[in-house]
């Protein structure tokens, strides 16, 4: 173990160069912002021109689910991958005992909040077609409901209906892939939807994604439902 003076010296030796590095980085990045070329070119025109083929009214939703559907698709994959990685660490579930976790206020508050959150979830999902909102915002609200239920001890990290939960976790990714690949059989590209069905399809996919995203985000919080295997020490 180093002596206190030595530790302080080491800390200074790390922090002074770090501060210089950060300051020069800030200057460099700031300079790059100030010297950006004018006028900027964007993709607004391209998006506006294609809006009528997208099936929805909100440009951000159109980009997410239709023009750049690939990004959204892979991002659901990343979410699922993160969950598999977290589960494989075998962290103990963050369970709460209802007897000790639930004060009268918390229990009543969660009972009153969760139905409201579910309504907000459906609204956010539907709002995504014409204004800000969409599957990820709705999924985040759903996950918040799940975390509240866990913190108040209403649900546990080790689910009894594990198979059903697994379907909910992977369903969004699966349906997205199945529909995206299914329309290839009709002569479209991967994740290209026929414009006449685009609205219904996007709403359907967003609905499935909302459930999956909500469950996955909550499951990331819950810890691993798996029993750690016995390992030899």
């Amino acid at each position: 173990m180093a002596s206190p003076t030595n530790t302080r010296l080491r800390r200074v030796l790390i922090r002074v160069p770090a501060a210089l590095l950060a300051a020069s980085l800030a200057l460099l990045l700031g300079w790059s912002v100030v010297t950006l070329p004018e006028p900027a070119t964007g993709l607004t025109g391209l998006v506006d021109a294609e809006m009528e083929n997208s099936g929805v009214d909100h440009p951000v939703t159109a980009v997410l689910l239709n023009f750049r559907g690939y990004d959204t698709f892979l991002e659901v994959g990343v979410l699922l991958l993160a969950l598999v990685a977290v589960w494989s660490l075998y962290l103990a579930p963050a369970d709460r005992d209802p007897e000790t976790a639930q004060t009268p206020v918390l229990g009543l508050l969660v009972r009153m909040l969760v139905p409201g959150i579910l309504v907000v979830t459906v609204y956010l999902l539907w709002a995504g077609t014409s204004r800000s909102g969409g599957a990820f915002q709705a999924g985040a609200a759903l996950a918040a409901a799940g975390e509240l239920l866990l913190l108040a001890g209403f649900v546990r990290g080790r689910f009894r209906r594990e198979r059903l939960v697994r379907f909910a976790l992977a369903g969004g990714f699966g349906i997205f892939l199945a529909l995206g690949a299914g329309f290839m059989l009709l002569g479209n590209d991967l994740l290209e939807y026929p414009p006449e069905f685009a609205y219904g399809l996007i709403l359907f996919i967003e609905g499935a994604l909302t459930v999956s995203i909500g469950f996955t985000l909550a499951a990331l919080f819950f810890g691993s439902p798996l029993e750690a295997p016995e390992v030899e020490k």
Partner: peptide, 27 residues
Amino acid sequence: RVPGENPDPVPHAMVLTGIVVAVCATA
């Protein structure tokens, strides 16, 4: 920065994607 009344939707969509990836990495 783009000319016109509305902001460019593509960065918005990409940032939304980025937020989710950041959440995954943080978790």
